[in-house]
Simulated scan of single mutants.
Amino acid sequence: MTLFDEAFGVVPEGVVNIDLDGDQELYVDSLRILRVHDEDFDNQDAKLNTWAYMAACDAMLDSPQDYQHLQRLLMVPREVNATRFGLGAGKPQGNGTSAPMLMKVFRMLRQIEGLKSTEHPESLLTFTPRFGPDRYSDLLTNIMARDFIRFTQRKCKRYNIPMTKGHKMNVFNPDTLEWEMLTDVELPEHNGLAILLVPKDILVSEYQYTAQEYVNHDILEGRKLFYVRDGRPLAKREIFKIETEDILHDKFKTYALAEAVREPKRFVGFLEKRQTLIG
């Protein structure tokens, strides 16, 4: 285990003192982008990049001639190991997801009245099967990778941290709306592996808008009242078992999506409340 300050003698302000030899269970949170107030990070540009990605995916759904382009865009790039964030070795990874699966979820989001996917990329995490916190964080990291590269370079220059050129980084290009591989990126490194710094204020140890959160804290609370009025006071776990008995896979996400379509104001309110709590 080698911490960043042990390797370089300093930890830049606004950065986690990461273990350079392993992963930390921290995730990039789209709701926290504008909470980052650091002169070395362009939070507005990062927010616009995320908006551009979501807007492009949504717009291409209606364009048959853009089908291949959309598929490329929805092929979530590999984990950005340079951040040292995500699930560590031995933790369950899942099988990932597919472009058609994400495409289906984008279409489903349109059924939730009042929800704008451009404003709520977190809804992808809530509803997409086999798309857990690590996959969602990977997607956000790739979308904002260019901003994180600039952030890293500015911090290193400010704190006289040595960098080397020649590192490869996959980034989202908002002009071409394509994933783009940069091949000569200047970054610090440890044991020959690049290091990508991320503002600590954009990171969380867990997301507050998973399907489980929505089901347990919003949907089932409401359904409890229904069952009480029906003369059947039940615990939330009993209600969930009853209402998902016909769902064979991804019970939480499938149930959450069906309920969000049925009661869209509840789901939009759920997301807006989380945004308000973050500030």
Rank of each mutant, 00 (worst) to 15 (best):
M144K: 15
G96W: 02
L140K: 02
V28F: 15
D21S: 11
M54Q: 12
P64E: 10
F41A: 02
K273S: 11
V228G: 03
T164L: 11
S117P: 04
Q68A: 08
Q44W: 12
M108A: 14
I143D: 04
N49H: 13
A256D: 10
G14P: 09
P129E: 08
F148P: 09
E79M: 07
P121C: 01
H167N: 09
H217Q: 10
L87A: 10
F131K: 09
V11T: 10
P133N: 06
L196D: 07
L74I: 03
M108W: 10
M54P: 07
D250P: 00
E25H: 03
Q275W: 08
Q24D: 09
Y227G: 05
A235E: 15
A82V: 02
C57T: 06
E25C: 01
L115R: 05
K241P: 00
G9L: 13
D184I: 02
G96K: 02
T176W: 06
N49W: 12
F151V: 11
K224T: 12
F148E: 05
K157V: 09
P264F: 00
N81Y: 10
K200S: 11
D42Q: 04
W51K: 07
M163V: 11
E186P: 01
Y136N: 01
E122T: 00
G94W: 03
Q275E: 13
H249M: 04
R35A: 14
R130Y: 10
H190D: 04
I219S: 05
P100M: 06
L220D: 06
R229H: 09
F85Q: 01
P121A: 02
G96I: 01
A89Y: 06
T176Q: 14
R110L: 07
L61N: 01
N49L: 14
R146C: 10
D184G: 02
T210C: 09
L234E: 12
P64L: 07
V16P: 04
L102K: 05
D147G: 05
M144C: 15
V28I: 15
I112E: 09
E6I: 00
K273E: 14
G90T: 06
I247S: 13
R78V: 04
D230K: 15
K165Y: 08
Y207V: 04
G96D: 02
V215P: 05
C57P: 09
D42E: 05
G114C: 03
D66W: 10
E122S: 00
I18V: 14
H217E: 15
S123K: 04
R274V: 09
T2Y: 10
K168Q: 15
Y53D: 03
T276F: 07
R146V: 15
I239E: 04
K236A: 12
D29H: 08
F252W: 08
R107M: 05
E243T: 08
R232E: 13
F8G: 04
A99C: 02
R266Q: 13
L187R: 07
V15C: 00
V15R: 00
E25W: 01
T128F: 03
D175C: 05
L125T: 01
F8W: 13
W179I: 07
G90Q: 06
E272Y: 01
F148A: 06
H190F: 14
M108E: 14
M1I: 09
N191C: 03
N142T: 12
V80I: 15
P121L: 00
S205H: 09
G166K: 07
V10K: 14
M163C: 13
T50H: 01
D5K: 14
